[in-house]
Simulated assay, not measured.
Amino acid sequence: MTACGNKESETVTPDNSTTPEAVETQPTQEATGTEETTSRDDTGVYPNATGLTEVAMGVTEDICTFKVPLNYVLAGGYYDENNEEHTIQGLNSATTTVEEALAAGSFSTGNHLAFFTMTSLDADQTMITTGMYTPDIMSWDDFKAYYTDAKEIGDESVPGLLYHVEAISGQCVAVAVKVSDDVTLQIVYEGSLEGEIGEDELGQRLYELVTVK
């Protein structure tokens, strides 16, 4: 898995808030593998979001949720018992939005969403790439040892790291979150927010997209 979530390489290259007001929530969508859906963006990460939902993520079981916007395109997959990547049915299109995938049941196939790339269809061109790392690829201690300049964020129960990696658009902010003893979730952000709010605030907002179960 590379720093941007592609698991074909087992190395990660080094080049590689304010609290908003509460929003009204809609009923939990139990059949889709998601939690509450909100009426707009309350994360400060998705400027053109029409709404938010939380998708479950994991390797052999769901261990956290990740807040995603309904109107962004999301393509993702899972790992089989041999640790090979597979695309999840319905999450393999360059045009299918999260909202459309929810309606089609793509998040309730029985597979655990372990990595995804998510892109805005609007002019801001926000892109987020995530990937779950197990110890045979890169452990939490490996992340800490590799990114020696990383800033520690989060707390003792769910620690995080803030650093930069080389992504499609150049040097980008990345956050690693220790979501279990054996799994680290990396988030890579490509967009304009770092220049607007700074890396520290952006890193905190990315960290807060994740809720550990």
Rank of each mutant, 00 (worst) to 15 (best):
V177Q: 13
P47K: 02
T43H: 02
K7P: 08
D62R: 10
F115I: 03
I128S: 00
H164F: 12
V175N: 06
T109W: 04
P27N: 10
S169Y: 14
K151V: 12
D182V: 10
L74A: 14
H112I: 04
I88K: 08
Q125G: 05
D62S: 15
V23Y: 08
D149M: 10
V73L: 02
V158E: 04
T119H: 05
T211H: 11
A31N: 13
A31F: 15
T60V: 15
G77N: 07
E156H: 09
S120A: 13
T97G: 05
S108P: 01
I153Q: 10
G51A: 02
D149V: 07
V210W: 00
T119V: 00
L202E: 04
A123T: 08
T34A: 09
S192E: 14
T43R: 03
S139M: 11
V179H: 04
C64S: 13
G110L: 11
H164V: 11
A167L: 07
T211F: 07
Q186P: 01
M127Q: 11
G198M: 14
L206S: 07
E152N: 09
T18H: 02
E199C: 02
T119C: 00
Y146S: 11
L70Q: 06
T2E: 06
S192T: 13
G44K: 04
V158C: 06
E194P: 02
N83V: 15
F66G: 01
E190W: 06
A176V: 07
T34Q: 11
T32C: 05
G170F: 05
G191H: 04
G58S: 05
D141Y: 03
Y79T: 00
A174N: 07
C4S: 10
Q26W: 07
T25N: 02
G170Y: 05
V45Q: 01
G170P: 05
E8M: 09
D124V: 11
S139V: 06
Y163T: 00
S192G: 09
I168T: 09
F116G: 00
L185F: 08
S106Q: 10
T96N: 06
A56I: 02
I63D: 08
I187D: 04
N6E: 09
T126W: 03
G77W: 07
I197Q: 05
Y78T: 13
Y72W: 12
T28C: 08
T211V: 15
D149T: 12
A94H: 04
E100S: 10
V68E: 07
V12N: 01
V188R: 07
D15T: 14
G203R: 13
D41Q: 06
A31P: 01
E30P: 00
C4P: 00
V188M: 10
T134I: 15
K144C: 13
E24V: 10
E30G: 01
C4L: 14
E190L: 12
N82V: 07
E30L: 14
G195C: 04
G160C: 10
A94S: 02
S192L: 13
D149Q: 15
M118Y: 00
D122A: 09
S93Q: 03
G198W: 02
S39Q: 14
T38L: 10
I88E: 09
